[in-house]
Amino acid sequence: MSALGHGALYGAVLIAVMLSTVAVGIWFERKFAGRMQSRLGPTIVGPMGLLQPLADVVKLLQKEDIIPAGADRALFNLAPVLATIFSLGVAAVLPLSPHMIAADLDIGVVYMLAVGGLMVVPTFMAGWASNNKFALLGGMRAVAQSISYGVPLVLAVLVPVILSGSLSLAGIVRWQSEHHWFALWPVIPGLPAFALYFMAMLAEANRIPFDIPEAESELVAGVTTEYTGAKFTLFYLAEYVHTLVGSAIGAALFFGGWDGPFAPGLHWMVAKTLALFVVVYWVRWTLLRLRSDQLMELCWKWLTPIGVALVLIAAAWVQFAPQGAL
């Protein structure tokens, strides 16, 4: 099988799996959020409301397509597709099990950061092309937030890279399965680095408490304000996929990916990913959104120096830790 065929096959399967996971994830989020708010969530459409996301999609695909007057039509149509590509594209370097990986890049970490960072392009594009003040403001804020939190994200990801000495995600997981999970040992750069990664990932995906770019109370729906039907569906999808892939990468970088006893590697990877995915929802439906200035202050005043400190501590650990402790 050629490399192209390998990538395409993995892409098709993985994307299909991720989409169904997202569909069930949306259902689960609505049920879980309902439970947290002492209500039931979807119950009527399908058994236990399971078909609700399907009904949503069937409806959204039927909605009329409106392009606002004065919009930049080409960019307006391009932005949702780009958002889909970039959010799904990160998954190419995900190591699902020792031998299941779509593209085993030797610089998987950098690829993940780079393609994930490209999400600012469709976001700004959508905001700018809509010819809508709410959308443009949301887009600018989203871009400012994404690039700001890009710095702690990179620093947090550097910690497992330093500890394992590899830039390949599969390599990092392999190192962890041979030695120890980074979230567990060494505790000091490991666990805070995971917390840093998790927060920065939430901010990159614009999830609460960092969803100021689409704060409904002030910006209507952020960059998606003017989007109807299918294009809105793509943005919606991209947001969930971004979170899902972010969780998977978190599991790979800090929780040993496929490593675990008794069960095959794929099961462990899926279980860890879903666990982190649930935590994202848990946080989302618990916390309030931060104000713009608090957001920026948190990022630049606290997370960035903490990230730098963690990188230095990790380097010191590699240098000075006794051989047995590794």
């Binding site: 490399a3 192209l4 065929g5 990538g7 395409a8 892409g11 594209g89 190419a92 779509a102 690829y111």
Partner: peptide
């Protein structure tokens, strides 16, 4: 590996 990644991106497109 890069070709695989490219194919992956094409599928997402």
């Amino acid at each position: 590996a890069w070709l695989s990644a490219l194919a992956f991106l094409v599928v997402s497109t």
